[in-house]
Design a binder for these strands. Structure first.
Lengths: 376, 376
DNA sequence: AGCGATTACGTAAGGCACTTGATTAAGTAG
DNA sequence: CTACTTAATCAAGTGCCTTACGTAATCGCT
């Protein structure tokens, strides 16, 4: 822990950051409100707000009709959300997605392009182009972006290098953060997609208000993202959540669905996800065998989750990824399984963010970085 | 996150805390050194040190021969470790242990008494008496203690209540922190023993310098303590590490040893720990069957650990508890198992703290609390 | 319309903590 | 004994915040 010390200017930085925070949390605020909330005197709040306006972080806004109290009308100020923008990028197995939002967290543009099998260099170019594209749609230059957050499949180390990727050919070993940082005139932050997904759930998804969350991604593969103490857990080698090589059949749940699909329509070759979609669709139509397979699948997931839930004791388990659309069909058996076996069963819910979760997480990740530089 | 703000006096508090920190980290320091390290001017460092001395936190010490440089000799100051003391208590299955240490972390007294089956009220009295005893041995009054840290078996909630204990009869439901706080004229902090054990390993054990650690306690039962980001992980219901009710045979490793002991000496009734001691002793003597049983036991533990290691990606796994005396006999098979199956295998080591780990952790927990109040 | 009550704005004076810079003190090296 | 080095001491001076007081703008009541 860095020992804090400093001269008088530190005080100003601190108070300035406090005021800015309060401004951003409230829609609008008067000087008196700011002074009270930040526990500083009015004159102090005044000069700080003047500075913030001069630097473009805040703006005065016209008074609204209706909320007029007694006494002299107060000037009203608000955080200038458009003073900066960030981009979030999601590098998925089949799609490159990107979003732009302002510093207030409002999404102002989004776009996506297919992510077919291509050499790494070409994909880097595609990402750069996509970032420029969405930035343009938002009326911003790439150079003016406060940060670009990127979420990608694979093991991503602390420096934003893709250490290992089985989904994207040629992606292993790419120094994604370095390469994008060289091509983009803005700070680039690369993270693993699971960690960003759970961050998104915490920000705008079903995990709002919960600081200890286990996120289970279900799609063509299984993945885990852990939120611990409100922050994504990365692990010593940034490999947290990698359950792919898990021994035994701990996480080999897909076979229940694959077996069902194979039995129902023999000869058909399916990916995990295709088999899952097939079985889920049949189950929703009322097919008893399919329902049984889905239940076995979910229970298997529950068993895997249990090995984590007991040691970690999370508040919440979120089931995300494309299979989470199945909702209670998937969630209910997991809930039952955990309820039976945990001293303190966590809540179990399905994600509602859908395919946007990783991009949203990348946005939040970039916003976190912007905040850090903003509040210093 | 609380938004910081404050007037000029905050600056003094901050700088004062910084100086105090530096003083405690260095054995002795001159004013110039302090000013440089804390990044404040010399006059500032001077008045702060004067204040600290007046309040008893620091003291001037005579110059040492030998380290004389050129120029006017500097006054030398040091942290006054004896300005405060804390007590750490470990409530184990068969023993109550206590230690006293000063604010510099030096143990100055220790004592322990048996913890036989007794009513909760009686045990509370025994703890209070033990605390008074060790405090007396250290030449301190209980009322002068900066904090008393207590580690106990069982599920301990955020307020220091024993929510559940299977080891100590009548211990379930005791508001340990409240009851002790009422009986002791000092701040009392109660935590789960596993979390304190891993804290001790981080402080003075094999986990020094590692911030992401999985600690596996092996004794009469299995328990887990997680250190995440350098801090003990508590979980949403403070039940982190409770693997007792784990489903299936995930953590039922003891049966390998119990089966061996039963086969070797039929009819003998043993606790888990007795069976383990028996098998380990035989294995050390070269008994092939015993070695096989121990290996199966260790491998079973490895399988349980794997379910945690892959999602959490710790730097280190520490095997603690009484069985860890077996050393490589236990650790080596676990290491092999994890090395085979992890993308990034953690280091695996046996604890060297022995039976003191929980008490040491309680000490460190109390010191953390003392620090928090010290540096404000 | 005028007046008091209420609330916010604006400015001045004072205090606290830190900094810089000059001067004095206390040693060592030659 | 002198030169050099480093520490202690003292004296401004600056930045930031606070309290205090006077001014401005609006509402509600008479």
């Amino acid at each position: 822990m860095r020992q804090q010390s400093g001269d008088a200017s530190l005080l100003r930085r601190l108070n300035s950051a406090a005021i800015l925070r309060i401004l951003r949390e409230h829609e609008v605020a008067t000087l008196s409100e700011l002074a009270r909330a930040a526990r500083v005197s009015r004159p102090t709040a005044e000069v700080i707000v003047e500075d913030l306006i001069a630097e473009g972080w805040a703006e005065e806004c016209a008074e609204e009709q209706g909320d007029r109290q007694r006494g002299r009308p107060a000037k009203r100020f608000r955080f200038r959300a458009s003073s900066g923008h960030v981009v979030g990028v999601g590098v998925g197995g089949s799609t490159l997605r990107a979003m732009v939002c302002d510093l207030g967290g409002t999404i102002v543009a989004a776009h996506h392009v297919p992510n077919y099998a291509m050499p790494a260099g070409e994909r880097l170019d595609a990402i750069v182009e996509l970032v420029a594209d969405v930035a343009g749609r938002a009326g911003t230059a790439v150079a003016d972006l406060a940060a670009v957050g990127v979420g990608t499949t694979g093991v991503v180390d602390g420096a934003g290098r893709v250490v290992k990727s089985v989904v994207l050919p040629g992606w292993t070993g790419v120094d994604l953060q370095g390469e994008l940082g060289r091509r983009l005139p803005a700070p680039v932050l690369v993270e693993n997609d699971m960690r960003l997904a759970v961050l998104a759930e915490h920000w705008r998804g079903t995990a709002r208000g919960h600081s200890d969350v286990v996120y289970l991604f279900t799609g063509n593969r299984l993945g885990i993202g852990l939120l611990i103490g409100g922050r994504p857990h990365r692990g010593a080698h940034a490999a947290s959540g990698e359950i792919g090589r898990q021994a035994g059949d701990q996480w080999q749940a897909f076979r229940h669905l694959a077996d069902f699909a194979m039995a129902a329509e023999p000869g058909e070759l399916r990916t995990h996800r295709q088999a899952a979609d097939f079985a889920l669709a049949r189950a929703e139509e009322g097919d008893a065998g399919a329902a049984e397979a889905v239940r076995a699948f979910a229970t298997h997931l529950g068993a895997g989750l249990l090995t984590l839930v007991n040691p970690l004791d999370p508040e919440l388990v979120v089931i995300g990824g494309s299979l989470s659309r199945a909702g209670d069909l998937l969630v209910e058996p997991i809930r039952e399984f955990l309820d039976d076996r945990c001293l303190y069963p966590p809540k179990v819910v399905a994600s509602t963010l859908g395919s946007e979760s990783i991009t949203l997480g990348a946005i939040r990740w970039a916003l976190n970085h912007a905040d850090q530089t903003l509040f210093t």
